[in-house]
């Protein structure tokens, strides 16, 4: 489930937050190629923003190729969607990771400790 509700105190404008939520959902696989996104009206009600803001977010996602509007049928995740979403997320993910790494090293954790943590986290994610 994607939590669509936007935060009006955040520095990013609401439509940009919706773009990021969609890309997160696509990158994670919650939204797969061919999946239909909520209608503009429905998403307006879920995110608590107006139609024009949702339409702006969908235009942006269409522009970068992650989704495609198909006339009156709706907006769908494209085949290339997951790759595009992951690429867009990669930059943010790495900068977040590097910042966390920096903090951890400053706090005196060893590279071995951190590697062990990464391995544990990864084995927890893998289905048994």
């Amino acid at each position: 489930m994607i939590d669509w509700r936007v935060d009006t105190e955040a520095p990013e404008p609401p439509s940009q937050q919706l773009v990021e939520r969609c890309l997160d959902g696509i990158a994670r696989g919650d939204l797969a190629p061919g999946d239909k996104l909520p209608s503009v009206r429905a998403l307006a009600g879920l995110a608590l923003v107006n139609h024009n803001t949702v339409a702006r977010a969908y235009r942006e996602l269409d522009l970068i190729g992650a989704v495609r509007g198909e006339g009156g049928r709706g907006v769908f995740v494209t085949e290339a969607g997951p790759q595009i979403a992951r690429q867009r997320r990669a930059a943010t993910t790495w900068s977040d990771f590097e910042r966390a790494l920096e903090t951890a090293l400053r706090a005196g954790h060893s590279i071995e400790d951190l590697s062990e943590r990464v391995r544990t986290a990864e084995s927890k994610r893998r289905p048994a």
């Binding site: 009206r41 429905a42 307006a44 009600g45 879920l46 608590l48 923003v49 107006n50 139609h51 024009n52």
Partner: peptide
């Protein structure tokens, strides 16, 4: 408040 706002945003003809 959120219920009214959500219904308003879904139903209004902009």
């Amino acid at each position: 408040r959120d219920g009214l706002l959500s219904a308003f945003l879904t139903e209004v003809d902009l």
